[in-house]
Design a protein around this nucleic acid. Structure first.
Lengths: 330, 330
DNA sequence: TTGTATGCGTTATCAC
DNA sequence: GTGATAACGCATACAA
């Protein structure tokens, strides 16, 4: 495979000139430029970026760490990240952490080994202290899930208001006994959504009943299980708010299995507006996050960090939206 | 950030010795090794792989090109690729081509620029000639979709037999008028599945009716649309075979909207066994591909190619399975 | 067992 | 406008 010296030789110029042509430097005559271009074509030369990267000590690669590539929610976020990245000459390395701290660590080695210029965490697994440390040494942005107080920028939505709006919608439909399917993790989103749920009840003078919160793990099966627990209660809820669409869909499945109807007997609201939400029967009422924009803004932030244009960590919240569909209103 | 020279200085050895410790060379005394390790720790040193990669002219990175990260089918394949890759010291760059030839080209630059050691195509967009050329110059494996005759290895399933089995299942249930939802693309899988459908009919002496094949684009909406066309026929089918689960789910939606029941009025079979297939109501009968294994085998093949252990292109077919669920049998 | 010296392919600084 | 050359950080052949 040809290298820059062979190109130079063939074009009858120095390697410096070839490099200038490669990098669109203006100080090269039209005639030489064409000679070089010709040589490049004839040799089918592709610059070896390993050399360039070493020299410039940058790779124009960024790391995007997410819990799960197959999660349709993150798919849209990634699209936003990629679009902005490409527009700015960056490539994106998508990495599955499976929410496993060890896998996360392994991928961060890529950053530490200078194979990537920065990193976007979709859902950091490590603790605050570690994140702080990473943030001090490398360009980092958090997107969607985030850790507060680590001095690291993030872009997300106001999960408290979103949950509040979802539950208020149910209350507005006359529901008073509203179950919630949450998760036993420490995500900010989870805590905030639970808080929004409680506040909505409180503002409508509905007493909070701890037993109405059941827990899953974001999976379909766990949604089924949690809903069954709610349905088995003596005084069972007439509506369910789940913190993810997949769990909401699991809940609907459970309700149907009990020969009950959605929304007539029990209304269901999800969260995220994944594509499958509008494919289901009934179509799911849910909170739509600006997934694509979240990704775009995160990448823009990261670029600023990498250029050193941003010292202070930023906290950015984008707008969400309640999408009303068949699972709450016939 | 510390480099190898600083580590050497601090440990009171030469850079060569540090390099030896880094690469687990045996010819270094236990005592020096420990001194070096100590220095590495104290300086929080991480080797700059840009240097190593340039020197070794390899990156231990491989490219995985897929049409769509969010497609749950590919998600499992990717998992297989990643697991084998990591076990062998490789990292995987996941890339979304959106089935766009230009995006595919851009990502292949990464390969040509020596930033990756090899590539796995989940669904090549380029033509046979181009793929042949790539295959002659770089380690390449095709996984799932593939182009025959380009001299490039692939691993997939026998789509013909799979479709045959699916349609035979419907015929066995007494169906004689069976619609098909296919796609107007040139994927081998598509052609083979159509052929399998026809052969199954033929073997059961059911006359093939061209009008019973409708076309979608793998999307939910296109599945709805195609099914509506089938339902609008004078003599409408009593069963539908779709070449993707998502389109099958779209078909079920359309059938329900016509106030018909699945499977009582119309049975439906999908293809792929994505996770949603068993979440839907009714749960979907479908062909399950060994997604994870497909990924594993593809990566193993690629590694062999990269090590130069494999000159001849391989053609590997893995087993599939018909999963019978509610959408065909109550 | 360890050190010295060279080169991987490129960019960038300095001359001319 | 162009060329010579010194890095970038590392691995390795060879020498000691």
């Amino acid at each position: 495979m040809a290298n820059i010296r062979e190109v130079a030789k063939r074009a009858g110029v120095s390697v410096a000139t070839v490099s200038r042509v490669l990098n669109d430097s203006d100080s090269v005559s039209e005639e030489t430029r064409e000679r070089v271009l010709k040589a490049i074509k004839e040799l089918n030369y592709h610059p070896n970026l390993l050399g360039r990267n070493l020299r410039r000590s940058e790779t124009k690669m960024i790391l995007a760490l997410m819990p799960n590539v197959s999660n349709p929610f993150y798919a849209r976020v990634v699209k936003g990240i990629e679009d902005v990245a490409h527009k700015n000459g960056y490539n994106v390395m998508l990495c599955n952490t499976d929410s496993d701290i060890n896998r996360e660590k392994v991928y961060l080695e890529i950053l530490k080994n200078r194979l990537a210029d920065g990193v976007i965490f979709m859902a950091p697994v490590m603790g605050k202290e570690e994140l702080t440390l990473i943030g001090q040494n490398y360009p980092v942005v958090q997107c969607c899930e985030y850790i507060e107080g680590a001095g690291v920028s993030y872009v997300s939505i106001d999960n408290f208001s979103a949950a509040y709006k979802a539950v208020k919608h149910l209350i507005g439909l006359g529901h008073k006994r509203i179950g919630m399917i949450s998760c036993e993790n420490n995500f900010v989103s989870t805590k905030q959504r639970e808080a929004g749920y409680k506040k909505a009840l409180e503002d409508s003078r509905i007493e909070f009943d701890e037993k109405l919160i059941k827990y899953g793990d974001y999976s379909f099966k766990s949604g089924v299980r949690a809903a069954k627990q709610l349905l088995a209660m003596e005084e069972r809820p007439t509506a369910i708010f789940a913190i993810s669409d997949i769990m909401a869909i699991g809940a609907i499945r459970a309700i149907k299995e009990e020969r009950l109807k959605v929304p007539e007997d029990i209304a269901v609201v999800g969260f995220d507006d994944i594509s499958f939400a509008s494919m289901y029967d009934p179509m799911l009422t849910t909170i739509s996050q600006p997934k694509y924009d979240l990704g775009c803004v995160a990448m823009e932030l990261l670029i600023k960090h990498m250029c050193g244009k941003l010292e202070e960590p930023q906290r950015i919240f984008l707008e969400h939206e309640l999408i009303i569909r068949e699972s709450t209103v016939k």
